[in-house]
């Protein structure tokens, strides 16, 4: 005869992350996430265009402050995120495993995610030196080109690997001073949403990173068309989505970055060009005289 459990476990409610808070979706709609045997793991928010809009407002509001934060500070905050993730390593491994990832792969992905944060933490105060230039113009002017963040970046994160893919796209964007709205993996969203809790505990100012869960088919057009988004980074979709994103992006000459075939577990995903993708080049002239 079965006996009642000593204690009923408390299930976690997965919410979205906007402006440093954890609201439920305003749509009131949810998506069921099952384990590999088909049993319900959790419900996640099926974010709406209004959730996205709110997230963009938060990201825009946070933009000037984050862009102005010193490179040293951005690096330290990225490092802090890594520390917090390391501290909750077991939780994330368990979450990935629950979603069907093997034990070894789950451990590797969490480790890679932590290491990737460290990698970009280190870049925060260096990419500028690598990509900037003092330009030897012929006239009596001092002329230099520096990188500046594009502003608000909308990211369609890769479905797989859910955590590592999200971290690999968030880290370079914020290392470069952008604020962002990311749509988490559709198939492996749980660890991504939990990652928002790590961010929340890591001195990342409210609004700098906003994370939604939901359906790409519903949200991608809004990510691409929103007139206050400066760039869209798209890690999913075929030619059709690419056309849709680029067509809508043209309305405000949004920059589009496609990272479709990237193997996020590969060392090739470790490079500062991922930061540069969401940077503008600004050139300044000044006379040299007495």
């Amino acid at each position: 005869m079965a006996t009642a459990a000593d204690r009923v476990p408390v299930a976690k409610t997965y919410k979205i992350y906007i402006d440093g808070k954890f609201p439920r979706t305003e749509s009131g709609r949810y998506l069921a996430i099952n384990d590999k045997r088909g049993a319900l793991l959790a419900n996640v928010c099926r974010s709406s265009r209004k959730d996205f809009r709110n997230a963009v407002v938060a990201a825009r509001k946070a933009q000037p402050g984050w862009a102005k934060a010193s490179a040293y500070l951005r690096g330290q905050i990225l490092y802090r995120i890594a520390e917090m993730l390391e501290g909750r390593r077991e939780q994330f491994v368990a979450e990935l495993r629950a979603g069907g990832v093997t034990a070894k792969a789950a451990e590797q992905d969490v480790d890679r995610s932590i290491d990737r944060l460290i990698y970009f933490a280190g870049w925060a105060d260096k990419y500028q030196q690598v990509f900037s230039a003092v330009n030897p113009v012929s006239s009596s002017h001092f002329n230099f080109s520096v990188l500046e963040p594009m502003g608000v970046v909308a990211i369609i994160a890769p479905d797989e690997p859910g955590l590592l893919g999200l971290v690999s796209n968030i880290a370079p964007a914020i290392a470069g001073g952008n604020t962002l709205v990311a749509l988490a993996s559709e198939t492996e969203p749980l660890s991504a949403i939990s990652f928002a809790e790590v961010l929340h505990a890591s001195d990342v100012p409210a609004g700098v990173v906003n994370i939604l869960s939901g359906l790409k088919s519903e949200l991608i057009e809004h990510f691409a068309s929103h007139m206050d988004v400066n760039a869209v980074v798209c890690c999913e979709g075929g030619r059709k989505q690419r056309r849709q994103v680029q067509t809508l992006a043209a309305e405000n000459v949004k920059r589009t970055v496609f990272r479709i075939d990237t193997d996020w577990r590969d060392a090739g995903a470790l490079n500062p060009y991922l930061i540069r993708d969401t940077q503008e080049v600004k050139t300044t002239w000044h006379p040299i005289g007495v």
Partner: peptide, 10 residues
């Protein structure tokens, strides 16, 4: 200054 151009300047 204004409207200055140079091949080396992006």
């Amino acid at each position: 200054t204004f409207n200055k151009f140079d091949p080396t300047s992006p």
